[in-house]
Amino acid sequence: MSGLYDDQLLDELLRGTQSLVGEWGLSDQTEVRLLTISENMTCLAYDPTQDKQLILRVHRPGYHTREEIQSELLWINDLRQQEIVDTPKPIATQAGTAIASFSTNNEIRDVVAFSFMSGKEPSTDSELINGFQQLGSISAKLHNHSQNWVRPVTFVRKTWNFDTMLGASPLWGDWRAAAGLTDSGRQTIEEACLIIRHQLEAYGMGDRRFGLVHADLRLANLLVDGNRLGVIDFDDCGLSWFMYDFAAAISFIEDDPLVASLQSAWIQGYRDHRPLSAVDEAMFPTFILLRRVLLTAWLASHSETPTAQELGTEFTAVTVNMAAQYISSHQ
């Protein structure tokens, strides 16, 4: 993927985003400020003349096509219409288009807008257990909708299976490029990946197990406000195993002592709305490690992001330890 998020590029992207605010009816006094950098750049646009604020997401080029972005927004709109989940509303431009764009460094940057949603990211303490029961319920409702929704013929999203995650052409890069990975660590993860592949092939991709999922329900994409648990950022939604959504939910905290309790709470909430078999439950360790190795690959291919710089080589070391434990559990 092109374009590292250095300071110069960030300044250019902010200026480009600023130039588009009129597309959504915001005045030239609108302030655009950076919120986060991950796959994309997310900004808050505030217009003091209207006391109005929008979230603007600036897409990284070379990842999603316009058709994929439009498909994400179609799913969000249907989820909102059916009141499946609390999530921000996609905001069309005044011309009625879903996507605006600007050009910088000879690259087109697609930009989409969402309504502002209040709340804060859940904290990793004992209160998170109750939140995960609620998240399990939300996940089940999402999966029920996914299984029953007749997708438009124009709908297209990426497929998250073993090959696109950890195979020959991984969407998020090669985990073998991870910071601090030793030869022995690489061999350990390679061995674990062989087991993961075998487990996934045996589990299968039937329509009760595999479908359209959020695919990134991590804490950073949840907003708590009182009793409401909001879900944001469907940017990675695609076709994958339903149980993968739990693994994504514990991204970056897989080794936290709370995980066993979080898993139990999530399963309890899930079963309130959708069946979950013992076979499904037995696959959790496989999906957790699948996601962990995928994140290791993402950090390697997105080394300029604050997340990658903060986690460094320690994240790789924990991934290797998790892989070794996974191998031991399958001997």
Score class of each variant (00 low, 15 high):
Y326C: 08
F315D: 03
R218F: 14
D245M: 10
A192M: 02
Q82T: 12
N321C: 11
S137R: 00
R57N: 10
D7L: 06
P88R: 04
Q82R: 13
S184C: 03
L229A: 09
I84P: 00
V293T: 10
V85L: 09
I84W: 06
P88N: 06
G206S: 11
Q53C: 10
Q147A: 14
A317S: 12
D233E: 03
W266S: 11
L73Q: 11
P90R: 09
D110W: 05
P306W: 01
C237L: 13
H145L: 02
A168E: 01
L217H: 08
Y326M: 02
L14P: 13
S329A: 15
N161G: 05
F114D: 00
A317L: 08
Q18Y: 03
P122H: 09
E281M: 10
T188N: 05
S123H: 10
H273Q: 04
I69Q: 01
K141E: 03
S118V: 15
S2E: 07
V58F: 01
K141Y: 01
L311A: 03
E304N: 02
H302T: 12
Q199P: 11
P122K: 02
L219T: 01
G96Y: 05
L14D: 07
D235R: 04
V153C: 15
L171C: 11
E67V: 14
L222Q: 07
M165E: 02
T313F: 00
L20W: 03
L142D: 06
T42Y: 00
D233I: 01
R209H: 13
L222V: 05
T188V: 09
L194E: 14
T104L: 00
F132P: 09
E107N: 15
Q53E: 12
A247W: 01
D163F: 07
D233M: 06
L35M: 10
L219C: 02
N144T: 11
D272C: 14
D280H: 04
S139Y: 04
L229M: 09
Q94E: 13
W266T: 04
P275G: 09
P275E: 02
R57A: 08
S251Q: 03
L223W: 00
D51Q: 07
M205D: 11
S169L: 13
G211L: 04
G185N: 05
G312N: 01
P48I: 05
V224Y: 06
I108M: 05
R157L: 09
T124Y: 14
G136D: 00
T49G: 09
Q29H: 09
E310Q: 13
L35E: 03
E83A: 13
L135C: 07
L128P: 06
Y46S: 12
I99A: 13
A317R: 12
Q199F: 01
T87H: 15
A220G: 13
A265M: 04
R209M: 03
A140M: 00
P285R: 03
I288K: 15
Q331P: 11
I288H: 14
F252W: 13
E31H: 11
K89D: 05
Q133C: 12
E107K: 15
M205R: 14
L311S: 06
Q147K: 11
P306C: 08
E281F: 02
Y244S: 06
A300F: 02
N105M: 12
Y203F: 15
Q94Y: 11
I69T: 10
